[in-house]
C-alpha cells in the first residue's frame, strides 16, 4: 500500500483536484479498503483465531460460571422463601402458645383470687363469731353484776329503813323491838 493512497487530500476549494485524486485512489483500491482482496486472508485468519479464543473462554469458563451463579441465586431465593414460610408458621404457632399460656395464667389467677377471698371470708366469719361470743359473755357478766348490785341495793335499803325506823321510834321515846321493826319494814318493802 503506497503512501500515495493517503495523499488523496482534497480541499474545499480544489474540487477538481479532489475528483482527479479520488479517481486515482479508486483505481488503486477500488475506493474501499473493504474490497481489497489482498487483506482478506489476514482478516479471516485473525477472525478465526479470535472467534475460537472467545468460544473457548466463554464455553469453558464464563458460561458455566454464570449459569452456576444464576442457578445458585434461584436456589437461594427458593430456599429462603421456604425458610421464611417456615418461620412464619413458627411465629403463628408461638403466638398461639403465648395466647394459650396467657389464658391459662388468667384462669389460674382468678382461681387463686377466689380461693384467697373464700379463705379471708372464712377467717372473718370465725373472728366475728368469736367476737360475738365474747361480747355475749361480757354482756351476761355485766347483767349478773347489775343484778347483784340491785340485790345489794335492796338489801341495803331494808337495812337503812329498819335502822331509820328504830331511830324514829326511839325519838318518839319508845323502846322499839328490833325484831318487830324489822318485820314491819320487811312487810312494808314487800308491799
Amino acid at each position: 500500500m503506497a503512501n500515495t493512497t493517503h495523499d488523496t487530500a482534497a480541499t474545499l476549494g480544489h474540487g477538481a483536484d479532489h475528483a482527479a485524486q479520488a479517481a486515482g485512489h479508486a483505481a488503486q483500491s477500488a475506493g474501499m479498503p473493504q474490497l481489497d482482496l489482498s487483506t482478506f486472508a489476514n482478516q479471516i485468519f485473525w477472525l478465526v483465531v479470535a472467534l475460537i479464543a472467545i468460544y473457548f473462554i466463554l464455553s469453558r469458563i464464563a458460561l458455566p460460571r454464570i449459569s452456576g451463579i444464576l442457578a445458585d441465586r434461584q436456589g437461594k431465593i427458593t430456599s429462603d422463601l421456604a425458610a421464611a414460610e417456615e418461620l412464619k408458621a413458627k411465629a403463628v404457632e408461638a403466638e398461639k402458645a403465648y395466647n394459650e399460656a396467657l389464658a391459662n395464667a388468667r384462669a389460674q389467677a382468678a382461681k387463686i383470687i377466689a380461693e384467697a377471698r373464700a379463705e379471708i371470708q372464712a377467717d372473718l366469719d370465725k373472728a366475728m363469731a368469736k367476737a360475738d361470743a365474747e361480747i355475749a359473755a361480757k354482756a351476761a357478766e355485766s347483767a349478773k353484776r347489775i343484778e347483784e348490785i340491785r340485790a345489794n341495793a335492796a338489801k341495803t335499803v331494808a337495812e337503812v329503813a329498819r335502822e331509820a325506823a328504830v331511830e324514829i321510834v326511839a325519838m318518839f321515846g319508845a323502846q322499839a323491838d328490833e325484831q318487830a321493826v324489822a318485820a314491819a319494814v320487811e312487810a312494808r318493802l314487800k308491799g
Binding site: 480541499t11 476549494g13 474501499m32 479498503p33 481489497d36 482478516q43
Partner: peptide, 12 residues
C-alpha cells in the same frame, strides 16, 4: 485546507 479521508480508517 480540509482533508477528506473518510475511508482511510478502514485500511488494514
Amino acid at each position: 485546507g480540509l482533508v477528506f479521508h473518510p475511508m482511510d480508517q478502514f485500511m488494514v
